Amino acid sequence: MAVYALTSASGSPGVTATALGLALEWPNQVLLVDADPVGGSAILAGYYRGTVAHPGTLVELWSAHRQGGLEAAVRELALRLSETASLIPGPAGAAQAGGLADLWPALAAQLRVLSQLGVDVLIDLGRLGHTHFATPLARAADELLLVMRSDLPAVAAVAAAEVPLEAPVRGLLIGPNRPYTAHAVASVIKREVSVSLPWAPEEAAVLSHGQPEPKRGLKLRKALRQAAEELHTTSITALGVSA
């Protein structure tokens, strides 16, 4: 299976909501790691609206790592999101993220082990360039997905971004044709745009703020399901692993 990392070059294009949406629609066992250094447990505070307790965060993983128990902690501390998806919540804030530097290499190695055991991994890295950006986790990814909107400031930021990673980097576009098409965006950023998700604020609010699901449409969910299936298929074929 594969490790995918999601990040952005500017603003708040919806990295966390996208990562969560993909995890919920993933057709295989998948672990979502919230490594956004801004912190704040966005999924627990947003999607769950603070109503769900969790057995541990990356801070507890750091503690387990210091005691030699990281492998077990990754299994035991993950919060079950669905029958197939689990979550390791992020730190409470940037101050905590700064203390996790020695966890990243060990966690990166453990995530690679999980992928070899048949579990896909999604990592929410937050914004590129942050002081505490989890570079070792980014380097552990088989592919980095740059999440962006299709407006000029967002596209310009991605085009100018430096991504010093060996892993392939592709675009994930939210709201194509607002105003630029995926093809136009790809030509500017000089990277393939492999995933396009529709502009659907009401549906996105379900993931980001725990709002009730709209009674009609669900076009975002359908697009997330299709994207998840395609990314998982890529992990079986293009990445040279077996199901």
Rank of each mutant, 00 (worst) to 15 (best):
L145D: 08
L117Y: 04
R112S: 11
M148W: 00
H130D: 11
V121F: 05
P198R: 12
L114W: 08
R127D: 01
L173C: 06
V193I: 14
H183K: 15
A223F: 04
E230P: 00
I123L: 02
Q226D: 12
I174D: 03
A134E: 06
A97N: 01
P201A: 08
F133W: 02
S115Y: 00
K215N: 08
A101D: 11
H132D: 12
A200V: 15
E192K: 11
P198S: 12
A95Y: 05
H130C: 01
D151N: 13
P168H: 06
S194C: 05
R216H: 11
L218R: 15
L231C: 08
G210Q: 11
Q211D: 14
R149W: 05
H209M: 12
A205H: 09
T233M: 14
H132W: 04
D124L: 10
A97W: 03
L137S: 09
G118Q: 10
D120T: 09
A200T: 13
I189Y: 00
Q226S: 12
S208H: 02
K222S: 15
P201S: 08
G175S: 05
L137D: 08
A157F: 06
L107I: 10
P168W: 03
G129K: 03
K222R: 15
V147F: 08
L145V: 08
H209W: 07
P164M: 08
P179F: 07
A108H: 06
R112V: 13
L165N: 07
Q211K: 14
H232C: 11
V119Y: 12
H130V: 01
V188A: 02
L197T: 13
P136C: 10
L145S: 05
A156V: 08
D142W: 04
A205K: 13
R139E: 14
V188N: 00
V121N: 03
V169G: 01
K190I: 03
E213K: 13
E229Y: 09
L197I: 14
W199Y: 15
T135E: 11
L117T: 09
D102T: 14
D151G: 06
K190S: 11
G126F: 01
A154D: 12
R191D: 04
T135N: 01
E213Y: 13
M148N: 01
